[in-house]
Design a binder for these strands. Structure first.
Length: 278
DNA sequence: GGACAGGAAGTCC
DNA sequence: GGACTTCCTGTC
């Protein structure tokens, strides 16, 4: 990987096909990346808007060096060796070989744990286009206006306090029966619970701690752990993953083989199976 | 086009 | 094991 700094741009190249904004956007981990035109994307995270462009193995981030070094390099997990996961996956069997090849551009974004908690509470018993729509409405109604680009307004993900200020609108936003789960999470965070602490806690303990939130079960806890707390060993089992394990592994998939990065393997599996059964 | 049924990154009781 | 909000999608 090669990083070149310009005045208001940072160019990253020689990524060896282990970075694709399109794959990241479509892999279902993030609902705040939109495709603008051609190869251009708008990414909202950390209370900021980032415009990025990708031309095969070259990515241009429209930000200064400081923002790249302190925010985006970490957010896109650029220092992690995804090649290792791809090689290990390829060696395992034919299905994983196809999956890692197809999804080789995936990265597990290091997103905000609070945003992940609410987003994946919303995700339960829901479909991806609708999840994206609800998250969008939630941000537009409750978040702060952080930027306007090409005539479009971009809003931050709301804080617990901001959501509580708009709790009467949750029904209109379309969260449905999940409103009580969201409200409970807001109350706990607002009264001082710090999700950041869980980044330092062992994965299994993190999951059981997260499951103490009302409306958070095993699946959502593992999503928050993987996408929001940097626990690459968290392995969310949703209907797709269970289907894959039944279909290709006779109901038993041994994740210990991928210790330390089984969550990344899970993401390749999810992304690939969805692509071939559409 | 429009109505309709089935189902959706699950969890609670 | 049934209920849960709402709406996207496929089918007729």
């Amino acid at each position: 990987m090669k990083i070149t700094y310009f005045k208001n741009e940072v160019e990253v190249s020689d990524l060896d096909r282990t970075f694709s904004l399109e794959s990241i956007r479509l892999s279902g981990q993030c609902f705040r990346i939109t495709k603008l035109e051609n190869s251009k994307y708008a990414i909202v995270a950390k209370g900021r808007l980032l415009i990025a462009e990708q031309y095969s193995d070259r990515v241009v981030f429209h930000c200064n060096q400081e923002d790249f070094d302190t925010v985006w390099e970490d957010y896109f997990d650029l220092d992690y060796d995804y090649k290792k996961c791809i090689i290990e996956g390829s060696r395992y069997d034919a299905f994983l070989k196809s999956a890692v090849h197809y999804g080789s551009g995936i990265r597990i974004l290091k997103q905000d744990p609070w945003e992940m908690l609410i987003t994946f509470i919303i995700s339960q018993q829901n479909n991806i286009p609708r999840i994206a729509g609800i998250v969008d409405k939630l941000c537009n109604r409750c978040g702060d206006l952080i930027a306007t680009y090409d005539g479009i307004n971009y809003y931050s993900f709301p804080t617990a306090e901001q959501i509580m200020d708009h709790y009467l609108e949750l029904k209109d936003i379309g969260v449905g029966f999940r409103d009580k789960y969201i409200l409970d999470a807001c109350r706990r965070i607002n009264s001082g619970y710090d999700l950041e602490v869980l980044k330092q806690v062992p994965p299994e303990q993190t999951t059981s701690e997260l499951k103490r939130f009302y409306g958070v079960g095993d699946k959502v806890a593992n999503c928050v752990s993987l996408f929001g707390l940097g626990h690459k060993d968290a392995f969310p089992r949703d209907v797709w993953i269970n289907r894959i394990i039944d279909k290709y592994y006779n109901g038993d998939f041994d994740i210990s083989r991928f210790e330390g990065f089984s969550g990344i393997i899970q993401q390749y599996m999810f992304y690939y199976e969805r692509s071939i059964t559409k």
